[in-house]
Structures are given as C-alpha cells and as structure tokens.
Amino acid sequence: MSLPPNENPPAIRTERRPGVVRIVPDRSGGGNALTERMAVEVLQALREAEADPTVHVLTLTGSGRFFCGGGDVADMASCPQDRRPAFIASLANAAHELAWALVTSRLLVIAGVNGSAAGAGLGLILNADWVLVAEEASLLAAYSNLGLSPDTGVSYLLPRLVGHQRAVDLTLGRRRLSGNEAVEWGLANASAPAQVFAAELAVAEDGFLQGAVQALAPTKQLLRAGTLEGYREHLRAEAESISMLSGHPDSVRRVDRFAGR
C-alpha cells in the first residue's frame, strides 16, 4: 500500500544500531495517533529493516508522553458523516496490513510502551512479540467510548492473552491498566519506571541479540503458527464492523464530541 507524496514531515522517525531498528511514531502533539500515512510509513520502515540481513530486532516505541493514542479521532471527525465509513475502512485496512506484517515478520518485534496506549495503540502492543511498558503508562481499549468496535487485531488477540472476561472488561467495561497491571494481566513481559525505561529497553534489545540470532525467526514462526490461523480473516471482519459502526448516529456524535466538534 502506498500514498501520494505529502509535503508534511514524516509521521515517524527511524533509529538504527547494530542488529536493531527502532520505529518511533513522532506525532506527540497529536498523541502519536495512528493515521493511514503513519501506518504506511511504519510498514515501509519494517520492510526496509527486513531486507537488511544484519537486522534481527524491530522495536516500536513512541515519543513524548504517548506510545500511540489510537486512531486519529480528529481526522475521523473532520470527515463528513456519509463518507466516514469509507474513511474508517481505509484506515483500518492500512492498520491491519501493518498488524499482519508485524506478526509474520522474520524480525522479533518489541513494543517499548513509553506512555499511554489506546485503541490501535493497544493493537500494536498485542501484535508485538515482547513488551516492555513504563510503570506510569496507561493501556485502554477506548473503542466503546466512541461507539466503535475493536480493530488492529484487538478482538482476536486480547481474549487469547487475558481470557474472555478480562477482554470484555477492557473493551466494553472501559477498564484502564497501569504498566504494572499490564504485566499482571499478561499484556506485557516487564515494566520499568520512566527514569530507567530507555535503558531497560536497550537491555531487552541486546538480550535477544546476545542469543543465537539465527533461531529468532524460526522460533517466532513456530510460536505464531497457532495464532495466525484465521487471523487475517478476522482482521477483515474487524474492518467491516468498525466501518459499519462509524456511520451510526450515536457513534458520529461520540466521535465529534471527543474531537471537540
């Protein structure tokens, strides 16, 4: 998937060091909210990292106070009501192409959850292979606040990680988790205070590189095999559901109110 040229600055920045590529959403003024352009830019950076045989670890982490605040609600609200379902479908499909690329990548994907993660941001975490979360971070689904259903694989991966009841609590009960609670619930591998988060993230990256890197991709493929069965079809169902709901009058009002319109 590609987008036409844009005079706006890139939505992400890429950092490299031996064996590791970091992709950093860099829209801190907008909560690092996921746009279609950002999803495409992350996917392109992922493909470039995969093409380099010296790279074995891909890290997604945010800038500022946010990891990823979910889909860009301001963009949604700026779209006329009759065109909103098509807009949401296009955004969801771009996010889902990225989600599929993350889980099928030969690279070990780390999510460095430096701050708040909501909606599609939670989805990016679920599609990662290993997760470090800041203790001060908050994780929430947020979809029901907008009258929408989950996307980015949240409704598929979340109950498999935390069970049906807890998945309902997060998606419909509007439960918000701290970094330490995310570890307790099995959504993250480890947590760290903000002041040492960056150092701990580098330690985690280096820990995987110190092992037998030739085993990373085959082991990930085997571990993911059961999860991937039916996943792509479920992503399509998620896109259809959130697109349909985005045109509901109550959902339109909720999105517009959230965006301050």
Rank of each mutant, 00 (worst) to 15 (best):
V24S: 07
T152M: 14
A74N: 11
H56C: 10
Q214H: 14
N189E: 05
Q165M: 07
Y143S: 12
V196K: 12
L222W: 09
E200A: 12
S243C: 03
E184W: 11
V113L: 00
L34Y: 04
R160N: 03
V73N: 02
A188G: 09
G260I: 11
R254P: 06
A217E: 13
G260L: 11
L91T: 05
L122M: 15
D169F: 09
Q221S: 14
R175C: 05
G179V: 04
N127Y: 07
G121Y: 01
R37I: 08
A118W: 07
L102R: 03
L161G: 07
S78W: 03
S28L: 06
D250A: 09
E36Q: 12
V21W: 00
L235W: 01
I23P: 03
R13Q: 09
L157E: 04
A204Y: 01
R16K: 15
A74F: 03
V103L: 12
D206C: 07
V20C: 14
R261A: 14
R22W: 01
H248Y: 13
T219M: 09
S191K: 04
V131M: 00
G62E: 08
L223Q: 13
Y231D: 01
W100D: 01
V213T: 15
E229A: 04
L122V: 06
G119C: 13
L126V: 04
R224D: 13
P10E: 04
R254I: 04
D256N: 10
L245R: 08
A239W: 01
E36L: 11
G147Y: 03
S63C: 02
S241V: 00
A117F: 02
N93S: 05
P53E: 15
R84Q: 09
V40D: 10
P159N: 03
L102T: 11
Q81L: 06
Y143M: 07
R254K: 03
S144A: 09
A86F: 14
A11H: 14
R65F: 08
P9H: 06
S191H: 06
A11Q: 07
A128C: 15
N127Q: 12
N6I: 05
A101H: 02
A141E: 11
Q165A: 09
A118P: 00
E240Y: 00
F87S: 07
A182Y: 02
N127C: 15
V73C: 10
V40A: 14
H234E: 00
T35F: 12
L201S: 02
V20M: 10
T104I: 08
P25W: 06
M244V: 03
D26Q: 08
A33V: 03
I12E: 05
A120T: 09
V103I: 08
G173L: 03
V109H: 08
T61K: 14
Y143N: 04
V133A: 13
G64I: 00
T35E: 05
D75P: 03
A142W: 02
A86M: 08
G71V: 05
A33S: 15
L228D: 09
R13T: 14
T104E: 10
L124K: 01
A137N: 06
V113T: 06
A259N: 07
L201I: 02
L98T: 01
N180H: 07
M38W: 08
H164E: 13
L161F: 14
E181L: 05
R253F: 12
R224N: 14
A192R: 05
G62F: 13
R236V: 14
E136A: 15
I125L: 15
M1P: 02
V213E: 09
F67T: 00
S149N: 09
T61H: 10
A199I: 06
A198P: 02
P159A: 03
E97D: 10
I242E: 07
S155V: 00
